[in-house]
């Protein structure tokens, strides 16, 4: 009798754990999540990967160095080094230079309404329609510079961010 109870208990808890393992399965690597949380989320692709999460994935897999993120700068490298227990290094400048707090600005008199920058913006921070003037939603702009290159009339320039001016 006792042995059946024990077998029942084991089978029951085994079944429960199996069910919970399926039910509460983590769909992503928690390390990737943690790394991604430290990245600046500009989605600028300067690191050579198509966005912040792919770069986080690459770091977690050991395929990329932690010093390839120019917008994050030294602060991000330090934070990543602390998280991963790695030696902190300086930014690899072949990926770009750190520029603090910038936002894109469209010179509206020159804009021809081609919508190319709207397609390039990773965070939907550009507003406009075909043949109509476009503008940047300053609060949403991450300053990733991805809209600069596609513009056929070079009417987008980068300005100092209004948030950056009063923070020291």
């Amino acid at each position: 009798m006792g042995i059946f109870l024990i077998i029942l208990l084991f089978a029951g808890s085994g079944g429960l754990l199996g069910y919970l393992a399926q039910r509460l399965k983590r769909h992503s690597n928690p390390l990737v999540e943690q790394i991604d949380n430290l990245l600046p989320q500009t989605q600028c692709a300067q690191c050579g990967y198509p966005g912040c999460r792919p770069y986080a994935q690459a770091i977690a897999n050991g395929q990329a160095d932690i010093n390839q993120c120019p917008p994050g700068g030294q602060q991000t490298i330090d934070a990543l080094a602390e998280l991963l227990g790695a030696e902190s290094t300086s930014l690899n400048t072949s990926f770009g230079e750190t520029k603090s707090g910038q936002v894109a600005f469209i010179h509206e008199s020159q804009c021809i309404g081609c919508t190319l920058c709207i397609k390039a913006c990773p965070v939907d921070a550009i507003l406009g329609a075909s043949q109509l003037m476009h503008t940047v939603i300053t609060q949403e702009c991450t300053g990733c510079e991805l809209c600069i290159e596609p513009c056929p009339v070079d009417c987008i320039s980068l300005l100092a961010s209004p948030d950056a001016s009063h923070s020291t």
Binding site: D36, Q41, Q43, G51, C52, V123, A125, E140, T142, D163
Partner: peptide, 9 residues
Amino acid sequence: KALHARQRY
């Protein structure tokens, strides 16, 4: 700000 940008992305 970064989290907000990620959400939008």
